[in-house]
């Protein structure tokens, strides 16, 4: 069938363009404007040039927070993606178990971020929390308020609990779309369980895995609410990620210029890493 070209169709995109302009482009322009100026309030600004960018790039505070962010995202992806695949592979494909599993998987995703943070903050407390008290009863010295490693473990377990379901649901959607004929052919060929996964299920899940990977990377790299509620960035600065540092700078200290410069650098890093992941995964998909 021949494609019909109609340039009037571009008008259909206009509402989206207006929406993106108001929600993204205009705020981004304002942040760029702030990043080269200083203000003491009252809508009065003074030219600062690239000073704020140099300040941010030369500060240990920025590099430490960025390192924490990258390590956190790497750990999250290394746990949630394989775990999500394993759970999706073991979920029932037919019967009453399907809706039950889907609802159970969707439940953590329905809970707001700040509520998840509060749940885990109470859950992990040594004095009243079920997890904290249980670990204390087992003789394990756990205290996320004082020990940086305990704080990190708590945040990672919390994120895995909250977001692995997303990976599971996406992988499950990929798995149920595979026609039975593929499995029947594999059975006739005497393919092992691993071969079925490697040559049938994994290729069919590639596209949803790409989405899961990108969503989890961007979300974990921009994480703010949960660590802010659970640890507030502590103990010390051990869980102060870039987003927490940014809020401290912009709202706590009212340093709008440095905060705007940090925002732009943060945005560029997310843009670069997302582009790299997207390109690598779509290229390997096209070649496979």
């Amino acid at each position: 069938m021949e494609k019909t070209w109609n340039n009037k169709a571009w008008f259909m995109v206009l509402p989206v363009l207006v929406l993106v302009a108001f929600s993204a482009v205009i705020p981004l322009m304002t942040v760029v404007n702030y990043s080269v100026q200083d203000t003491f309030g009252n809508n009065e600004f003074f030219w600062a040039g690239t000073d704020w960018f140099m300040d941010v790039l030369e500060s240990d505070r920025f590099w430490d927070a960025l390192t924490r962010n990258l390590i956190f995202s790497a750990i999250i992806l290394a746990i949630e993606i394989p775990l999500g695949i394993v759970i999706a592979l073991n979920m029932p494909k037919k019967g009453i178990g399907v809706p039950i599993c889907l609802v159970l998987m969707a439940l953590p995703l329905l809970i707001p971020w700040n509520v998840v943070g509060t749940i885990w903050q109470v859950f992990g407390r040594v004095d009243i929390g079920l997890l904290g008290r249980t670990l204390a009863a087992l003789g394990i010295n756990y205290n996320y308020v004082q020990n940086p490693i305990d704080a990190w473990v708590t945040l990672i377990v919390m994120d895995v609990w909250h977001w692995t379901s997303l990976v599971v649901l996406l992988c499950y959607a990929g798995l149920v779309s595979i026609p039975d004929a593929y499995y029947q052919a594999a059975k006739i060929d005497g393919a092992s369980r691993w071969s079925v996964f490697r040559y049938i299920q994994l290729p069919k899940m590639k596209r949803v895995l790409l989405i899961a990977f990108l969503l989890r990377f961007m979300d974990s790299f921009m994480i703010y609410t949960e660590p802010f509620v659970v640890t507030g960035g502590g103990p010390g600065n051990s869980t102060t990620f870039l987003s927490i540092d940014l809020v401290k700078m912009a709202i706590g200290q009212f340093d709008l210029g440095p905060a705007a410069a940090l925002s732009i650098i943060y945005f560029l890093i997310i843009l670069l890493l997302s582009w790299i992941f997207y390109t690598v995964m779509t290229t390997s998909d096209a070649q496979g």
């Binding site: 205009i26 322009m29 304002t30 760029v32 404007n33 702030y34 080269v36 100026q37 203000t39 809508n43 600004f45 030219w47």
Partner: peptide, 15 residues
């Protein structure tokens, strides 16, 4: 648009 704190260099950049 004064709340956007426009300057000539940033305007030229976006232009």
């Amino acid at each position: 648009f004064s709340w956007m704190a426009w300057t000539l260099p940033t305007a030229l950049f976006f232009l």
